[in-house]
Design a protein around this nucleic acid. Sequence first.
DNA 1: GTCTATACGTGGATAGAC
DNA 2: GTCTATCCACGTATAGAC
Lengths: 186, 186
Amino acid sequence: MPPAVLTREEVVARVMAVVRQRGYDGASLSELSKATGLGKSSLYHHFPDGKDDMVGAVIGHLEASLETAVFAPLRSAGQPAARLQAMTATLDGFYYGGREACVLAILGIGDASRRFHPRVKKLFRAWIDAIASALRDAGLSKPLAQARAEDAIVRIEGALVLARSLGEPAIFGRTLKALPDDLLRR
Amino acid sequence: MPPAVLTREEVVARVMAVVRQRGYDGASLSELSKATGLGKSSLYHHFPDGKDDMVGAVIGHLEASLETAVFAPLRSAGQPAARLQAMTATLDGFYYGGREACVLAILGIGDASRRFHPRVKKLFRAWIDAIASALRDAGLSKPLAQARAEDAIVRIEGALVLARSLGEPAIFGRTLKALPDDLLRR
DNA sequence: GTCTATACGTGGATAGAC
DNA sequence: GTCTATCCACGTATAGAC
């Protein structure tokens, strides 16, 4: 094994990939070690509190990358419809066209949920607020924008669950495609 | 501990409750033992292949109870709108008003997904078909009924994820309430 | 059918050399 | 910063008495 040229970012990305596929409890240190190319001790060097720290870093990464890649564009100055389409395009990439699960949803299960609930909740709230902001700019009332924004997340998360359960990623794509118009319709 | 007056049904129900809250990997034998009031050895007496067997029994229970409580009514002879409302009422109970996760979604994560994917997929398909049957009876075209039925599951599963992630069960209730009209609109 | 006791692997975590 | 070696707890699973 080469002397680990991975940046912290890359290590965190690989930890996220494992957690995404195996769940928090299913993500063992051995597997995380294999996935990152770092021995267990090295992992503890970078993440003194173990798995908790690693997943904390994953959430931190999500907080940052969602903010810049999803939330900020949703709040920007362009056409609301275009902003929503930008979001769906980005999400299609994030979730590999519906083939990968949502880390936030995964972290709502079992032990992880108690540990990370506050941050997960905050992230979902920020996401909802960002979508609602685009909808308000399109002329929707505040309560309607809020409700539709929540519905957007509902459909995104649900589409991921169903697409993966059926082994039909296309369901996610269809859902994303319909989303902007459905949200903006009056 | 009394000589276990629990029926197999009750044992399976308690296993399901644990899996629902902790996930497949998080559901340890010790916890299952505590929850059922049966020692580990007793569990192996009833379920020789261990956790796999137990979760298999949980899925069997779901196959049966969803068929009688959800699918069959959806295919029955009443008004389509009434059949859909019956479904949402039943689901509200199944999921404790949005406070409990969906076992099928839980089983799509990690190890469990490989093991149980075929049965989970079949169950989702049967559910979609049953909803589509009600929508066809309401006059929708076959492809539209199919797409809307998939969207129904998308929203149900997504609402469960979001309601639990935000700690706002009401999101699930709102989603259920809007569902019949949304599905039937043309 | 249920229990106690136990075997054996793996999980998370640490010590200490390099 | 990374490794090897090791620790202990807990996980799954089994044996065998009652």
